[in-house]
Design a protein around this nucleic acid. Structure first.
Lengths: 215, 215
DNA sequence: GATCTAATCCCCCTATTCGGTGATTGTCCG
DNA sequence: CGGACAATCACCGAATAGGGGGATTAGATC
C-alpha cells in the first residue's frame, strides 16, 4: 500500500514541483495539495494522508497551529515541517505542536524523498542545523525536568495529598477543610513531610517538590 | 587542518576497526584511542581531539558521566555517542550530558564517516529511531517549560533578587542578611512582590515563580 | 522644580507556621 | 498476638509571616 501524502503550502509552484517529484516514486501517492490551512481538519479528513508536508508561513492560520490541530484530531498522521525558518522559537514550537520532522527548504528537493521514507520507517528527519538546535534545546532545559534519579522520600499517600495542597499554596486551615481532617492532623502530616524531605518551611517544600517533581 | 578524533570504547576490536575506517579519510586524524574513561579528562587534554566518539557501556565510569566531565572541561569538543542502547533514559541522559550526536552501533560502519562530517559542519547526526525519541521527549515536556508568552509582572531588579531568595527557601531574616538590608526592607519587597504576582503567601510565590520560570 | 519610581527603613497587631511531645485507632503482616 | 506503620487528633510556646499604615533618600524623567 503506498504512502498517502498531503501538502500544505501557499506557493503553487512549490506544491506542483513537489507533486512532480513525489510522482517519481511509486511508493508515494498524492492524497491532496492545499494552498492554506484554514480548513486543514476537513482537508486531512477527506484526503486521509499518512504523512503531511506542512509549510510554516501561510496566509491565515500559521502552519504550526495547523499541526497542533491536526495532531490533536489525527494523532496517527505524521507531519513533516518544511520551511525556510530556522529560528529557535519556530523550530521548538513546531516540534511541541507535534511535528515529527523538520527540513529546511533550501535543500528540499534532494532530501525530501529520503525524509519521507525516514519518517515512514520511524525516524525523524531533520536538517543538520535543526537537529543541533533541538539537542541544544534539550541541554538547556532547567535541571528539574531532566531525569535525575528522583530520590524516593517514602511519603505516604496521605502525605502526598497534603504535599500537593501545600504546593498549590493552601494554608493549613484550607488543607484541613479540603481533606476533611483537622488542623492538627494537617500539621502532623506536614511535620512528617518536613522530616522526610529534610526541609523546614513551606517555601522549601514547594521548591523541592516542584524541582524533584514529586507532585 | 584535519579533524582530530578520539575514541573511547572498551572493545579493542571496535577501536581498531574504527581506526582503520577513519584512516580511509584523509580529512580525519586519529588523536587517541582509549579502552576506558577513568582518565578521560587527561586523555582528552593530551590527545586534544575536535571530536570524541564515546561508547556508553564501559568498565568503571559510564560513558555518559564521562561526556558530562569532558563537556564541562572542554566545551568545544563535540561528542558523538555510539552504542547499542536506545532506551529513552540513556538517550536523554547522554544528550543532557552534552552529546551532539547519537548513533546506534548496529549500522555504525556505513554511517560513521557521514556522521562525523555532519557533526563537524554543525549538524547533530542521530540514528532515525533516536531522532524520533528525541522529538517525542520534547513533545512530552510539561507545559511550563514550553515557550509560553511568560507574562511580565514588572518586578524590579531588587524584587527579583528577593524573589530568588524566597524560592530558595530563605526566611525574611536570612534574606536580609544575604542582601545586606534590613528585615523590614525585605518585608516591603515581599509585600510588593505579593501585590504584583497576586499571591499572598510564600508557598504561592515559590509555586508561581517556578511554574512561570520568573527565576 | 515637580513628579515618579526604586529602594530603603520603621511600628503595630494579627495570623500562621514550626518544634516538641504525646495519644488513639485501625490495618497489615509475620 | 505483637510489632510496624499510616492516619488521626491535641496542647504549648516560640518564631515567622502577613496586613496596614507611614517615612526618607537618590535618580530618572519631564
Amino acid at each position: 500500500m503506498p504512502v498517502r501524502i498531503a501538502i500544505f503550502d501557499d506557493n503553487k509552484n512549490i506544491r506542483e514541483s513537489i507533486t512532480l517529484l513525489l510522482q517519481t516514486e511509486p511508493a508515494f501517492e498524492m492524497a491532496g495539495s492545499f494552498p492554506n490551512v484554514l480548513d486543514c481538519l476537513d482537508d486531512v479528513k477527506k484526503s486521509n494522508p499518512n504523512i503531511v508536508l506542512m509549510d510554516i508561513e501561510m496566509p491565515g492560520m500559521s502552519g504550526i497551529e495547523a499541526v497542533r490541530l491536526i495532531k490533536k484530531e489525527f494523532p496517527g498522521v505524521l507531519v513533516l515541517m518544511q520551511t525556510v525558518f530556522e529560528d529557535d522559537d519556530r523550530v521548538f514550537d513546531s516540534i511541541c505542536a507535534g511535528a515529527s520532522g523538520y527540513i529546511l527548504k533550501n535543500h528540499l528537493n534532494h532530501k525530501l524523498i529520503a525524509a519521507i521514507k525516514e519518517l515512514q520507517f520511524g525516524g525523524s528527519p531533520m536538517s543538520p542545523s535543526i537537529a543541533r538546535k533541538v539537542l541544544n534545546k534539550l541541554q538547556q532545559l532547567p535541571e528539574y525536568v531532566k531525569p535525575e534519579a528522583a530520590p524516593d522520600y517514602h511519603l505516604t499517600p496521605r502525605e502526598k495529598e497534603v504535599l500537593a495542597c501545600v504546593v498549590n499554596g493552601l494554608s493549613y486551615k484550607m488543607i484541613a477543610d479540603q481533606l476533611f481532617i483537622s488542623y492538627e492532623t494537617v500539621r502532623t502530616h506536614i511535620k512528617n513531610i518536613y522530616e522526610k524531605l529534610h526541609v523546614a518551611s513551606l517555601a522549601e517544600v514547594v521548591h523541592k517538590a516542584m524541582k524533584e517533581k514529586i507532585v
